[in-house]
Amino acid sequence: MFHVKNKFLKQIIGSILDLLPIFVVIFIFQLFVLKQPIPNVADIAIGTIFVVLGLTLFIQGLEKSLFPIGENMAYAFAKKGSVPWLLAFAFSLGFGTTAAEPALIAVANEAARIAADGGMIQASEQAKISYATGLRFTVAASVGFAILLGVLRIIRGWPLHYLIIPGYIGVVIMTFFAPDAIIGIAYDSGGVTTSTITVPLVTALGVGLASAIQGRNPLTDGFGLIAFASLTPMIFVMAYGMVI
């Protein structure tokens, strides 16, 4: 019991250290650059306790649930030896986690507004909603495809940069043909697709697969799934902007 308590305390101190820089930056700028007092001290104090507690709980839960789930499923699929089912799982995981991502919904709505302002679509509410929904599912499908491709890469043992560098070249070529208004959103959409829950799960899946399959190294082959998931949305969103 004492050991558990000790570990929890250690984790809390770790969380405080992780969060300290944000507070230092904000307070220094508020007091010395903007030269203003700190507002709502009570709210900030309670909020700080919440953030520290939340980060501590998340990290504890990570090692108890998200990591083992991802790894165990990777081992089970590797043992079963059914590649189609594994790829189906990879696609659904990417698609399912992205379609409902709040950050993506916000970006898609923003994109619809820009498209309407730029005269690419009609300015009616309905046209905007259908544009935003289409974009959202395009990105979700692209992330599904990314995880699928990434898993296939781990199975086959292809070097990561053979796939990522052509992807970059694809992004650059698309940039010259895509409408100007969509480029910023497309570039940003690569960053917003990967949420706090998806990242640990997908990382554990990749590392688990690379450990379970003979001849693969968890370090060189296990990582890279997130990289695909940040790259394909850029290409797909620009393609969407060109087609619509």
Partner: peptide
């Protein structure tokens, strides 16, 4: 449950304080 509660407290704290 830890993960869900952790993310919730983290987000509420950020929203209120930072």
């Amino acid at each position: 449950v830890y993960v869900i509660l952790g993310i919730t407290f983290f987000l509420v704290g950020l929203d209120k304080a930072l």
